[in-house]
Design a protein around this nucleic acid. Sequence first.
DNA 1: TTGAAAGCGATACCAA
DNA 2: TTGGTATCGCTTTCAA
Lengths: 346, 346
Amino acid sequence: MKKTQNSRSVTAEDVAQLAGVSRAAVSRTFSNNGSVAPKTRVKIIQAASELGYQINFLAQGLNRKRSQLIGVIVARLSDPFRSSLLEALLSEIQRKGYQALVTEVQGADELEMTIRRFTQFRVSGVIVTSGQPPADLVKECVQHNIPVVGINRHMDIPNVDFVCSNNNMAALLVSKQFINSGCTSVGWLNYKGSTWSGINRGDTFRQVIINKNIFNESDFLEIITELDGYEGGRRAAHDYCKQIKKVDGIYCANAQLACGFLDGMRENGFDAPINFQIIGFDNTLQTSQYSYRLTTIHQDVSTTAQRVLTCLETRGQNPHIIQRFEEIPVKLIIRNTSPHTDNIRT
Amino acid sequence: MKKTQNSRSVTAEDVAQLAGVSRAAVSRTFSNNGSVAPKTRVKIIQAASELGYQINFLAQGLNRKRSQLIGVIVARLSDPFRSSLLEALLSEIQRKGYQALVTEVQGADELEMTIRRFTQFRVSGVIVTSGQPPADLVKECVQHNIPVVGINRHMDIPNVDFVCSNNNMAALLVSKQFINSGCTSVGWLNYKGSTWSGINRGDTFRQVIINKNIFNESDFLEIITELDGYEGGRRAAHDYCKQIKKVDGIYCANAQLACGFLDGMRENGFDAPINFQIIGFDNTLQTSQYSYRLTTIHQDVSTTAQRVLTCLETRGQNPHIIQRFEEIPVKLIIRNTSPHTDNIRT
DNA sequence: TTGAAAGCGATACCAA
DNA sequence: TTGGTATCGCTTTCAA
């Protein structure tokens, strides 16, 4: 480990000199591109490790017009599901040899700024887990040949792929579970200004329940809270307790709402599964804990992440393939807030 | 918005041409560096927006030998505290105009790879929230003049700063609370192979409790679980219930352990604050929920994040300042698992 | 298989 | 205040 100078970093040129070859050869060995004789290859590798050479990714990316960066747009990581999704994405991104650039956004305008910045880093792809990518921005990405994929959302933007948990399958599983366990009326809990997937989960549930004539309109209750999250669910429960119309089973758009609703009911002296049934979404760690043991739909974040990366890579190679909408199967995890029937148990 | 070519991106040269100036002038206007006449400045800005020009950060970073990237090393984001810390860091990083590069690591060797990769992107700083930076790697960072700062840990590595919640203050607050509420024996719950801060919290607590002769050694119980997290805490409670030695108040290294322990006790028919008291650490959202309402030490993630960025920036300007160890004040949030005394309430 | 050389796109120094 | 130019470090033809 010797240094030519103190603060100058080791370049391919330095390695080339020590190995007695041209810097082109060095580039070839490290990028596994052109051909290089086994013997010189060894010499170069040796020289490189002696000097502690490492590729400058900025220079590499500049030249290739593409970095090994992947931009990830997230929001509200305080929601355990969202952080577990990010965790899965990170692990997949790293496994494939990329490096994640992550940005948390609040509003739609920030999303725009962010995507723009991603393109300035010449990322190999953009993953959107929050908000909807503005059509014209996506166009910019396409111009730079940067693939974009959205998770748990779906819009008709050409050239953008979407990977989404199968909400229809979830609705089917949930309604089946409610029916099998004797419910004669059901409810849907979501918050005002919900995400695309929240709304979609509600729509598919309603479709299954009402359009298929399983229940009447009057046996279906829709609760839309002002607030999101635990507190939203909790308040919804307090309001619910004050009103007359009650239902046997409640399906919630996400885990936070479900836990909050359950706790709110408990504060009023009601509990599941004694007084009602409740099924959540997400299957976050928290929902499995003793104090909740929530029956819930499980989203498979790791296959979601894998599919996302696959979409990114395939579209990276061929930008003109048609838009894809991949649905990831979900599972129903039956715990304590809904009785065991013939469904899968955990 | 016109395009000279279809897929080539707009460069400073293009802008210069359209504005009828040199590309040096363009660079000056956008990097706010050298001087440029107001009139030409306007011309350039106009030309730039007409073409949709955006700086190529790869080229910029290559030239400046420094990107506006900041590397963040995280682990186990499934722990709500860790994800809230990341959230705070992201928000601060973005607020200061940087862009976060985040990597999740499992073991020490991955940490090494990761830091190395960060340097290859010529990051402006590295934030370590997990694991301890190997000394020789840090040396590499120093050579590249990349500042490194660790959160909630402390080692004696020259040139690396640390920002940490004030564990001593926490121990003081907790012991005071236990004493004021009549405890005559106390316990400490942590897991085997805990992080630096976990161990440090235990040590300071023991020091306050025993070394200051508040309690005898025999009135102090140390519970070290095999597993971390909720499940670790839960099992610890089950074991605890089987043993004879009992204590009045239990202080936990983190929120997950605390919730698990509390639930485990409940499974055995005991609850706080009736049968015992319990105080957690972290103040994650979950601990505030109705099912837990855990009395807990609150860590201030946002000032932590601010301090971290400050450390990064100051050391970026002057790499030779002495090592800093900043302690962030904590608060005791009294909820339900420990009675209200004269302390602050929430 | 190898090396020379022309970029990639921006910055910064220096002379005008 | 400006523009010319060397430079940052790597990749990639193109000849040899």
